[in-house]
Amino acid sequence: MLKTLMNRFEQGNRTSSYPKTPIEMPSRYRGVPTIAPEGPDAPADLAKACAEACPQAAFDADKRTIDLGRCCFCGTCERVSKSKLVHFTQSFELSTAKREHLITDGIGAKNGANDDANAGALPDLANHAKQHFKKLFGRSLQLRQISAAGCNACEADLNVLTTPFFDLSRFGIDFVASPRHADAVVVTGPISRNMRTATLTTYEAMPAPKAVIAVGACAISGGPFTGSPEVSEGLESLLPVDLFIPGCPAHPLTNLHALLSFFK
């Protein structure tokens, strides 16, 4: 008993006050990218070099855009361009309500500043959220998670939302054990051929109205497994997706920000 109390005292209160107080990410974290306009520092050749180096073919050299749905945030383009063309900021607010919104031209940089304050390259998620979802699920949101060939990194960073630091349930959001109890399904992984039916059956078992959330590069585009005959090219080829949360894996704060902005 005494040990229990002493541990409790030592552990203290760890719950973050996010979103009231912002959280700063360490400098090596790669979040929303900025892309510099064509200029002497960032010529078209450099854009080509970035596109060629990108292992995920996420960088479009002509349009100077990054598809965050394919991007695995490995930082290769940033290294190749020595941060002069592509720079990943520490902003973890990466999620969008539409697939095409994930193809970003890194507008923050176009405004002249290559800093985090201007990282707003993505359309504001809260404004694009379906308003009836907010009304329905704003106070209570029950999530059913399906790992459909996810590598357990996205799963782990969703699961961690229930630990004391994030404490998801203080927002009225919980993971539930049955699709019958769920308002939204959270899918991770590239949806392998062998998980296709189970994914669809789970979705069908949920009562309407229901939301679909794709977490991670795999669920959005197939991720690193794109091109394998054993996986799909993303959840959208199977189900209507309402919320896209990119990353490899998506950081827990990216997940939390997305859930709060979209549903609350």
Partner: peptide
């Protein structure tokens, strides 16, 4: 269920 075909890739 998780088979993604990594080895052939």
């Amino acid at each position: 269920f998780q088979h993604r075909g990594i080895e052939p890739m």
